[in-house]
Design a protein around this nucleic acid. Structure first.
Lengths: 239, 239
DNA sequence: ATATAATATTAGACTTGACTAATTATATTA
DNA sequence: TAATATAATTAGTCAAGTCTAATATTATAT
């Protein structure tokens, strides 16, 4: 909800990320900084072309961005020259990279997502985490790793929960028993009203993953569900 | 990092949130939907003015947004008339609200942030969570609540970790012992190089929270730190 | 029932960030 | 060194999303 905007600024990045007295950067500009930094770690010369390729955009967009970043004192860059980060630029990039790292760990190690998707999510969220939230998540991730080293049992319990199947994981023709329904809001309410209860047996009639609705039968009724809804129904496959 | 853009689309919302065959909505439009839905829960008549107030923007921006949302078939709305959500609009809003809810719980209950900040973070992140990530986080939040009910000890251990103080929590003149340093990347490396090690005693000389640098002494050296850096140093206050 | 106040809409401008097409620099190669 | 290929920049366009100022509609109060 809320999410304050500013005059003529469609992004509201004053509310964003940056905490310290630092230059306020839009998510976009943060992304440039992060990626330039990453490129500099791999090759020691970074060209406009490289950045364009990495971000999957065209060169003129990069040129424009570099000019802005130069004005803010974050990159060293002369026309037709190579790109470097200033000391301040490196700090900014490192701060973002830090968020990126623990967010990736969070999704990959804690939530057991595959590496690629974890990275993607980290990319999207890193520019929107407040300093405080960031810090707490970071501490949480480090806590998790320690608990894992200590062989704490809850880690296994969590893993089992995350491995449970959802209705949307089933294929056409499969049967399953409803284990539980996630959520608490109107979405869950609607599912309950439709007759989805713990213990009921459901049978997937038709499911074309790309075209939304999943057709299922439950107690001889035929129902059609959106993937979103099927996602929040945890099931135990039968036979 | 990565974060694919599309031609002429500065928001890249094709990569975003929406999973199902649904109308792809920009984070911004999602925000409108969510807020309209919330207003409808409180009052049964929603006016342009109310939306403008809630989102902290001016009325003409709302009018424009409503016209777009109407085109997409998400709101019922006639010029100078009241605003309602269509059935499809309600589904969309509910899906977003669901994310909002568990994200808020995550930040508030698990990471012990205060309610207001938790809500703020949820607002910012809810539009950027993929369906899969969303689902896993939701399951994690529900898992946590169950573990809490079961009185599992790790919950307390986590709380203690989150209560630990950071260097940036100290006030001018305070002394503290370094407990540990968060992170793993270049930021941590720099701090280690500066002499920040577990067990060292630090003394805050000067700290003006709004103007960045924190001046501290460590083993008779004087150092200046950015808040970002001070944030990742966990300390145990002395005296 | 009309005058006034409150709400909403249109029109036009601005910023961010992308794009294409055309031009200018730099590098490479004969 | 001149000719060509590669890379980078400028100029101009577009869409999203905001704004202000001016106008139009609806609601309220006399």
């Amino acid at each position: 909800m809320r999410m304050r905007r500013r005059q003529g600024n469609p992004f509201g990045f004053n509310d964003n990320t940056n905490t310290s007295t630092d230059i306020p950067l839009s998510p976009n500009m943060e992304d440039y900084m992060e990626n330039i930094s990453m490129l500099l770690k791999e090759h020691d010369v970074v060209r406009v072309k490289d950045i364009a390729k990495k971000l999957n955009i065209k060169m003129p967009s990069v040129t424009a961005a570099l000019q802005k970043l130069k004005e803010k004192g974050l990159v060293d860059y002369e026309k037709y020259g190579h790109v470097q980060l200033t000391a301040k630029g490196k700090e900014v990039a490192d701060t973002i990279y830090e968020k990126h790292s623990f967010l990736t760990e969070f999704f990959k190690d804690i939530l057991s997502m595959d590496k690629q998707e974890a990275e993607q999510q980290a990319c999207k969220l890193e520019h929107h985490l407040s300093s405080n939230a960031s810090n707490r998540m970071q501490r949480f991730v480090e806590f998790y790793k320690q608990e894992q080293l200590d062989g704490q049992q809850w880690i296994n319990r969590l893993d089992s929960v995350l491995e449970e199947k959802r209705l949307s994981d089933l294929k056409e023709g499969e049967k399953a028993e409803i284990v539980r329904i996630l959520g608490s809001g109107p979405l869950k309410k609607r599912l309950l009203e439709m007759g989805f209860r713990k213990g009921e047996i459901i049978h997937v009639i038709k499911y074309a993953p790309l075209k939304d609705p999943i057709e299922i039968s439950i107690k001889d009724f035929l129902l059609s569900l959106r993937v979103e809804e099927a996602n929040s129904i945890i099931v135990k496959p039968l036979d």
